[in-house]
Every structure is written in structure tokens, then in C-alpha cells.
Write a protein that binds this DNA or RNA. Sequence first.
DNA 1: CTGTTAGCGCCTTCAA
DNA 2: TTGAAGGCGCTAACAG
Lengths: 301, 301
Amino acid sequence: MEAAVEKLGYVPDAAASALASNRTDVIGLLIPSLTNSVFSDVLRGMYDEAENHPFSIQIGNFRYRPLTEEMLIGKFLRQKPAGLIVAGLDQTDISKGMLRAADCPVIQIMDYDASAEGDMIGFSHYEAGAAAARHLRDRGYRRIGFLGARMDPRTQRRLAGFNDALNGTDDPQQSKRVIVTSTASSVSLGAELLRELLVRAPDSDAIFCNNDDLAIGALLEAQRRGIRIPEDFGICGFNDLEMSKQMNPGLTSIATPRYEIGRLAISTIVDALSSDKASDPTRIDLGFTVVMRGSSARAVD
Amino acid sequence: MEAAVEKLGYVPDAAASALASNRTDVIGLLIPSLTNSVFSDVLRGMYDEAENHPFSIQIGNFRYRPLTEEMLIGKFLRQKPAGLIVAGLDQTDISKGMLRAADCPVIQIMDYDASAEGDMIGFSHYEAGAAAARHLRDRGYRRIGFLGARMDPRTQRRLAGFNDALNGTDDPQQSKRVIVTSTASSVSLGAELLRELLVRAPDSDAIFCNNDDLAIGALLEAQRRGIRIPEDFGICGFNDLEMSKQMNPGLTSIATPRYEIGRLAISTIVDALSSDKASDPTRIDLGFTVVMRGSSARAVD
DNA sequence: CTGTTAGCGCCTTCAA
DNA sequence: TTGAAGGCGCTAACAG
């Protein structure tokens, strides 16, 4: 009979199946931005992992707007997804309530905070910011600025870690060296923010950038201005994009496990779906790595 | 009654609706790669446009494999999508048959070829390749190479246009200057391919790159080798990524209407769905623009 | 034009 | 273990 079914070219109807079983094979993914190059790696990991499973991925873009996220969570949940993946730990209370009540696996990705509730796969942005500050300080830089675009909650946590780690550097100007904006991150913006830093605090001798786009823009702008890197000025980026190591000098950055987060998010959902017994909570801190390259490789005496 | 319905928090069931109407509100999108930075701009355009409509977007990644594309077209069509968007004009015959028979709007994007069938929104890659060759020749370069990664059909058309435009340049070595590989494009690969070109044809004085990733990698590698750009060596990229204009010198590139393609693809489907009368075929050539910057701005006598 | 009803195709339960 | 049948909630066709 199965053979006959094969021959006749039978294909199950997804809608009928969904109606009867109250479940689809769509995994919903909610991300704050499509511009952010970060998410393309996460997506790649997800698609690589999903390839071996009968799931489709449907992306919702909430544009860094919590209320849009709330609306999309509701919309996705109504579609009876196989699972839901949301970026970040900072949903509104209403969103959190919906996620808690959802009758499908829900994973939060990108961030890790032991005190937050729910399943999560990510790393601590606070620690990453602190590690960047420490790295630059260890290389002998003393007047370290911060360039940031679109300060989402994770960026703010990096800034908090950065600031806390620099406390005791007794740089009275430290707060002046934090240059942030609400506009989207880009290479051009990195150049712009560096110019602004050098106006507001011209004696700055290093920067930690929100992400590698900004860092690359700042590096290129510094070179246009004849600033010697790393001798006179150190730069540390964040994310370690593929191109960062190709810069001249190479860009020091913080490598983040974006691809792995994507893979694990899907495989966690698949596992939760296959093992009918309630599985253990998934709370994975994947960590990060400071990758030193030329842009901060100053000789320390 | 409608008010009561509101009050009771009624929400329609997507699966039941799909089963009864034989139609969902999902627009399927088939792309060959998630790595390619090109598609993030296309996606952005799509999501920006879709925001005003009740459609969700579901992405299939066929990894440059025609048979995977075929399988995904079948899978998507079975879900009764509101519409289908496929990248490229080069599907297998079976795929083409399925697309022709689909009972939903189908748009091909990224490419434009007047002799191909079906609705399409894109531009001519052949012409783009020819324009790049002409630009470099007009700036006085005479021994122009081509760097290419993952030669998909559109890339090959750019190469064909490039080659045809250089015919008559009477460079007997022209074919030696074409360096291509099957691996995925990246900045590092651009550096690598430039090194290879300079081994195989050391007298080359310019390159047209597959895309800006390669071009940026080649530019940075050339600088590491002390090659003067644009005096001794000209570079033209493709796609005009945001960061290209920030390079030192700025990277000459071919600006492509990626965001616009995304927007138009969605709005075309929405229009086709709303106007019940069969609408006119959509065949839009959006063109491209050669943006000259420092990397090819050599004084011509 | 409004109100009613018969499926849509599968899943799941219940009977054999 | 296998098989039959009732719904899942909506849409569209049809009757009034």
C-alpha cells in the first residue's frame, strides 16, 4: 500500500495536517534586524542544521521594536509553530508571558544571563565588554573610548561590562569617550563616530567598537588621518567578521559563536520535539574569544 | 457581532483557513546562498515592503544546487503559497515546468534577460560585466584580469560580458587572466585569487572582481604587496557594498539595485493577488550603475 | 444580499 | 494490531 501511495505521487497536505494535529513544521525565528551582519551567520547555522530535518524557517523582523516583537510573537504562536527562536532576553512582560505559555519549544539566543528565565543559547555580553576593556588596558592603552550604534540591550550590556572593567583606570574623562547613536551600524558610521570621539576627547588612545563594521570604519578613518595603529591608537572590534583579519593591520576583535548558536538552536528544538518526555532546560553559555591582531598589538613595556 | 468577536479575542486559525481556501499567506523565497551578502539587501527590501501586508516570508536555501532548488520548489508549492520568488533564470526544466504550472504569482529576481520566459525583476549581468571591462579599459588599463568565486549562472554571464567587451583588446594573455574557483566568496579569497593572478599573469594591470568581497580582499592584498592603486593597478568590484566607498582608496564598483529588487518582488506579488484580473506580465530591467572611485581613478592621457 | 451547510484532508480516537 | 469515522475551523457555494 505504501508502495502504491508512492507510485500515485501522493503528497500530504500541509494545511490539513496542521489543522488536524494542531501543529506545523515551521520554526519561527524573531530577530531585531536584517541589516546586522551578525544574523546572517546565525541564519547560516540554522539552515545548515535544518537541512537534515523537515522543518521550514520563517523569519520575523521586529526592527528593535519591543512592541513589534510582541505582535510577531503572537502572530507566530497562532500559526502553531514547531518551535520558536527569539533573539535576546529582553522581551516585554506580555511577550514573556506568551513565550512561557507557548506549547512549543522556545529558545532565546544570542545572549546568556544565568539570572534570566527560560531556555537560552548565547554568551555574556557583559563579560565580552569587560574582556575588551581589559585587553586594551593590558596592551597599555589608558584612555579608551567606546563607539556604539543602535544601543540594543546586548550592546548596552557590553558597554556596562566595558565601563565596569575600566573603573579604577582613574581616567576622569572616561564618560566623555563613550560615543553612541541610535542609527543603524555601518562602516561609514564607524568613521563618523571616530571623528566625533577625536573632537570630544582628542587624547583618546584606543577604542572598543560595538561591532566590526564600526571598527573597520574607524580603522580606515584613522588611516586617512595618518594615525598610527597600533602605536598611537588601538582598536578592538566585536564579532570577528571574516574580513576583519584581512585588514591592514588585522583588526583585533571578539569572536562570537554566531554560527554555532544557530545550529544549536535548531538542534535543541528538534531534540525537544522528538523526545516526548520533557527534556532538561537548555541553558548554554558558549562564551567568546578575544582575537588579538595588529590593531591592538602594541608592544608593552 | 464583529465587536463581540473582537472582545472574545477571536483569532482565525491559519491552518483551517489554508485548508478551506487552498491558500496560505506565506510567500516563498528561494535563494542560492545565505552567505552571499547580496541577499541580505534583497531580504531587507522584501521585509520592508511586506511589513504593510499580512504576508510572511519563508526562505529556502538551495545552496547553488539546481536539484535542491527543484526539490524546494516542489515543497514550497505544496504549501499553497501566496506567491513564490526565485533567484535567477536558470532553473532545471522540471523546475521551470513546476513554476509555469504554479497557481500563484511567481517572480524571478536578480537577473534580466529579454529572451527568458516568465516574470522577472533584475538587471543584465552580461551588460554589467561588459560595463566593468569598458570602464577599466577607458581608464587606460590594458591587461585586465577577472577574479571569480563560485561561478553561478549570473557570475558566468558577467564573465561573458567582460570577455566580449575586451575582445579586440588584442591581449593574447586575456584567458590566462581569468581566475575562478568553486569555493564560496570571501574577503580572504579575494586576497588569495589576486596572489594567484600575479603568479599566472604577473603583468596584469587591473581586475574586475565577481563581487565586492573579493575586490576588497584583493585591494587589501595589493596594498600589503606595495602595489600602487590606481596608478599601477586598477580594481573594479561588483555590487557596491556599503563599506566599499570607505576603503582607501575607495573601491570602484557596480552598484546593483538589490534593495529595490526585494521591494518590487513583494509589491508585484501583492498587486497580482489583489487585482483578480490577470495582470500584465512583470518584466523589469532595473539596470545598474558604474560608480568610479579611487581604485580605478587613474589619470588618462 | 445574507444565512446556512457541506466539505477541505488529515489525525486521532475508538471499535473490532 | 488494524480499520473506520468523527471532527479540526474555516471558506465558498448555494439556497432563501
